[in-house]
Write a protein that binds this DNA or RNA. Structure first.
Lengths: 143, 143
DNA sequence: ATAGCTGCAAATGCTTTGCAAGGCC
DNA sequence: GGCCTTGCAAAGCATTTGCAGCTAT
């Protein structure tokens, strides 16, 4: 098994795209840059689309969705579902959990080793555990 | 603080509605009956609407949504978000967690004392922990 | 050249809303 | 009767899709 390197830079993302066989097109590269060049992020498609426009990159919202899903399938992103009707994409694909600030609809990472989930029940026969999501729903305003 | 009684029967639901000041209308009572008279359930609005129709109760989907949200606000239901674009409503409002079978889009309760989440980080200043959701995402078919 | 992408706009799926008509107290 | 509810249809969002035109290799 090849070690999974988390792309932190444009160069790594490009390399990653090539290796996997996704054409490094202008829009994919631009999106990868926005996503992976500024540490861990949680973005919605809409947000990323706005960022792209602000950065003078012409990308349609449909392409943003396509790219986010492609990146997710390739393991570059992780989709986090906390609200009905909106998906967040997390650039941190390592094992970890989330705070969700309900009043401001924002996510924050919690290091995987900071929360311990024990005494997990065994999945029913015929099924396999794919992922454990822990969401700490928080209220009140962040200062 | 008045003890919270989980409505398990039509009568209890009716009583509960009255006590809270929601008029026990035909449709609310019918929905309460469907929801609370058969043990713990996880339903979507669409499902409940179909059940109501099958039971020859005329209810519009809009009213199903309204009722589900009202019941949720009153603490009779708990909303569970596991998939983008669809909400599940859980008649079990006690402290517990969930298996989510991704291939069949179904939820299953895990008793609260069966999973232990320890070493929870403290919420950031100015915020309060409202709820802890643990979702065990499972793949493969149930037998 | 050509297989794969992109953009646009239309379609979809879930959910919410506006408002007239209806029903509980 | 009065006020809360309902129902319907229309509106609202986030997301997906179909397809003609573009582009990286």
């Amino acid at each position: 098994m090849e070690p999974v390197i988390r792309p932190r830079t444009y160069a790594q993302a490009l390399e990653r795209l090539r290796r996997i066989g996704l054409r490094p097109t202008r829009q994919r590269l631009a999106l990868a840059k926005l996503l992976f060049e500024q540490g861990d992020r949680h973005v919605t498609a809409e947000q990323l689309h706005e960022e792209a426009e602000a950065a003078k990159v012409r990308v349609s919202l449909a392409t943003v969705y396509n790219s986010l899903h492609q990146f997710t399938q390739l393991g570059l992103l992780r989709e986090v579902v906390v609200e009905p009707g909106r998906s967040y994409f997390d650039t941190n694909t390592s094992d970890h959990h989330h705070f969700f600030f309900e009043d401001e609809a924002k996510l924050m990472d919690i290091p995987g080793d900071r929360v311990e989930v024990t005494r997990l029940p065994t999945p029913p026969a015929g099924t396999t555990l794919r992922r454990v999501d822990v969401i700490l729903r928080v209220g009140g305003r962040l200062k």
